[in-house]
Simulated assay, not measured.
Amino acid sequence: MRGLSKEAPEDRWEVEALFDLSFAPGRTALSSYRLREGVSPVADLCLVLRDEGGILGGAVRVWPVRIGTAEALLLGPVAVHPTRQGEGLGALLMQEVLERAAGLGWARALLVGDAPYYGRFGFEKLGDVAMPPPTNPDRVLGHALVPGAWDGVTGAVTRAV
Score class of each variant (00 low, 15 high):
M1S: 14
G3W: 01
P9N: 05
P9E: 02
P9V: 05
W13M: 15
W13S: 15
E14W: 05
V15N: 14
L18V: 09
F19E: 04
D20A: 15
L21K: 10
G26R: 15
G26D: 15
T28N: 06
A29K: 12
L30Q: 14
L30G: 13
S31T: 05
S32G: 15
S32W: 08
Y33K: 08
R34L: 14
L35G: 11
R36T: 04
E37S: 04
G38V: 01
G38T: 00
P41W: 08
V42R: 08
A43H: 14
C46W: 08
L47H: 03
R50S: 10
R50F: 06
D51T: 06
I55H: 13
L56V: 06
G58N: 05
A59L: 09
R61V: 15
V62N: 11
W63P: 12
P64I: 08
P64C: 13
V65F: 10
R66M: 07
I67Q: 00
G68Y: 00
T69Y: 04
T69P: 09
T69K: 09
A70R: 00
L74P: 07
L74C: 09
L74H: 02
L75Q: 06
V78T: 12
V80S: 05
P82D: 03
R84H: 13
R84T: 02
G86V: 06
E87C: 14
L89S: 11
L93F: 13
L93Q: 10
L93C: 13
E96V: 01
E96C: 09
V97H: 08
L98F: 01
R100L: 13
A101G: 08
G103V: 04
G103L: 05
G105R: 00
G105H: 03
R108S: 03
A109M: 00
L110G: 10
L110Y: 00
L111V: 02
V112K: 06
D114K: 02
D114Y: 05
Y117L: 14
R120C: 06
F123Q: 04
K125V: 09
L126I: 04
G127W: 06
G127I: 00
P133W: 04
P133Q: 07
T135K: 11
P137T: 01
P137I: 02
P137D: 01
D138F: 05
R139T: 03
V140Y: 03
V140L: 09
V140E: 07
V140D: 10
L141R: 03
G142A: 08
H143E: 00
A144Q: 07
V146S: 11
G148Q: 02
G148A: 02
G148L: 01
A149M: 07
W150D: 03
D151V: 01
V153N: 00
T154W: 07
T154E: 14
G155Y: 01
A156V: 10
V161G: 13
